Amino acid sequence: MKVLLTGTTGQLGTALQNCIPQGIEVLCMSRTELDLLNPDQCRQAIEKHKPDWVLNAGAYTAVDQAESEPKKAMAINAGAPEAFAEVLEKQGGKLLQISTDFVFDGTQSTPYKPDQKKKPIGMYGKSKAEGEDAIMSKLNCSDRGIILRTSWVLGPVGKNFALTMLKLHSSKDEIRVVADQIGCPTSTHTLAEACWRIITNNKNTRLPSIMHWSDAGAASWYDVAIAIGELGQELELIDRCAKVRPITTEEYPTPAKRPNYSLLDCYETRKTLEIEGIHWRETLRKCLKEIKTNQLNH
Score class of each variant (00 low, 15 high):
L96V: 07
K167P: 00
G145P: 10
D180S: 03
W196A: 12
G158M: 10
G217F: 06
L191Y: 01
E89F: 07
S137N: 13
K118A: 10
L139T: 07
K113G: 03
F104L: 00
K94S: 15
Q97D: 11
D173P: 07
M211E: 11
P111T: 02
T186S: 13
S187T: 05
E174F: 10
A129W: 08
L191Q: 06
K126A: 03
C184G: 05
T186M: 01
D173W: 04
K126I: 10
L96I: 09
T190A: 07
E132F: 04
S137K: 15
G122H: 08
G92Q: 14
K138Q: 14
W196M: 11
I182T: 13
V87H: 11
K138L: 14
G217S: 09
S214L: 02
N140R: 14
V103S: 01
W196C: 08
M165H: 05
Q108V: 02
K113E: 08
S142G: 02
G92R: 06
T100C: 09
S109R: 12
I198S: 06
D105P: 01
L191P: 04
V87K: 11
S99A: 14
I199H: 06
K117A: 11
A162P: 00
L168K: 14
Y112P: 09
K94N: 15
T186D: 01
L163W: 01
T150W: 08
T100Y: 12
G106H: 04
E193C: 03
A194H: 10
Q181E: 15
D101I: 04
K90I: 11
I147L: 13
P185F: 12
G93F: 13
S109I: 06
C141N: 13
T190I: 02
G106S: 03
A216W: 07
S142W: 03
T110F: 01
F161K: 06
Q97M: 13
M123W: 12
I210C: 09
S109W: 01
V87E: 15
K94R: 15
T164V: 02
N140Y: 14
C195V: 10
S214E: 04
T188H: 00
V153Y: 02
M211Q: 13
G122A: 11
N160W: 00
L88I: 08
V153K: 02
K117S: 05
C141L: 10
Q91R: 14
S209F: 09
I210W: 05
G217A: 06
H169K: 04
G122N: 12
D180P: 03
K94I: 07
I198W: 08
C141W: 08
Y124I: 03
S187K: 03
A192V: 03
L148H: 05
W152R: 06
G183I: 02
K128A: 15
L168Y: 14
T164E: 12
I199A: 11
G158T: 04
I98W: 05
T205L: 09
W213F: 14
K119D: 05
L154K: 00
M165R: 07
S137T: 12
T186W: 00
C141V: 12
M165V: 05
T150E: 09
K119S: 09
H189M: 09
I146R: 11
L148F: 11
K90N: 11
T164G: 03
F102L: 10
G93N: 13
K172V: 01
W213P: 05
Y112H: 10
T186F: 01
E193Q: 15
R144C: 12
G106W: 00
C195A: 12
D143G: 14
G145Y: 06
A179L: 04
S151H: 10
K126F: 03
L148V: 04
